[in-house]
Write a protein that binds this DNA or RNA. Structure first.
Lengths: 167, 167
DNA sequence: AGGGTATAGTCAAGCTACTTGACTATCTAG
DNA sequence: CTAGATAGTCAAGTAGCTTGACTATACCCT
């Protein structure tokens, strides 16, 4: 696209993939920094990804496994960490002796609330930068990719792929 | 991929950060799959990130350290891997006995060419999905974020960090 | 009831992609 | 010529996954 920086050698990459990655990284860095600033020092990207799947009312560990696209062992390790930090707690499932229920602690719920607030603040800043319209268009485009991408991957990528889609 | 999944509890997240992450992941998965299909089995995301910074004419390892935001040790390890795979080679820098020049091998250049082709194919597919206009708008928005984020970084964080940190 | 199989979760080991810390070799400035 | 900065290496540790092997419980069938 724009290529007027021949300063020295070659320009930094500028294709969709790179830009998406960059924007995603920037968002995450901004969010994580704000969370840390809000006193949630335990916050990491991986944990955030998992927490996004835990409903406020709590849920079975196995349900969590279905929703997030990673292995049950990975989830367990993440939960171990979150439990140690006092963000979630695991209780035996009264309906199923094998199962465990994962629930937010008060501290966890506080963090969620702060997280929601921070998300809105960041979004507001983004809207400020590219305008209400631009923002809506952006979200539309991203959602279109998510939908189409999953379909495309089903077609040719095979079973190993990290399909995010909900199933 | 309609959204008729209120099956049970709460919806999956749908904010900018999540969507950006999803889109970025989808792009990467698509790209990596295509690269593997093209015979570049050594390809990984981390390596891709580094390769994106190596100019086709080769460069000093130290220059690479400046451009990419990770530690020199990490870069070295990645280069060790890429060298073992025969993608790049390291030569002593004739102008500086301490330095080493990192250069693509023929195999590396082949991979780059394939990578460029694949990028264009993916981009074409994206354009097909959201239209030429939509695509241009998307890229504009993403670049605006990058610029804004970078500016924010210049303000209060050092050059090394990827912390966006509003402070 | 008894036996097979599926499901829920755990334990252990290993891999990738980083990190920090400590070290060597070389260059440059005073 | 020596002090210090710079380029790169070596070693060890961490986060966030992976696969494989295992235990405990539930469900289903005859």
């Amino acid at each position: 696209m724009v290529k007027e920086l021949d300063e020295k050698a070659e320009a930094l990459p500028d294709h969709v993939g790179w830009r998406l990655w960059q924007a995603s990284r920037a968002w995450q860095a901004e969010f994580a920094a704000a969370m840390r600033a809000a006193g949630h020092g335990w916050f990491t990207e991986a944990r955030a990804g998992l927490l996004g799947h835990i409903t406020r009312t709590g849920m079975r560990q196995s349900a969590l496994i279905e929703r997030s696209a990673i292995s049950k062992q990975a989830i367990q390790q993440l939960l171990d960490g979150l439990e140690a930090e006092g963000i979630v707690e695991r209780l035996p499932d009264p309906q199923d002796g094998r199962g465990k229920l994962v629930r937010y602690t008060r501290k966890g719920l506080d963090a969620l609330r702060d997280g929601d607030r921070i998300k809105m603040e960041i979004e507001r800043r983004y809207v400020g930068r590219i305008g209400e319209e631009g923002f809506t268009a952006l979200m539309g485009a991203l959602r279109a990719f998510a939908a189409g991408g999953a379909a495309a991957m089903d077609e040719d990528a095979g079973p190993e792929s990290e399909v995010v889609e909900s199933k």
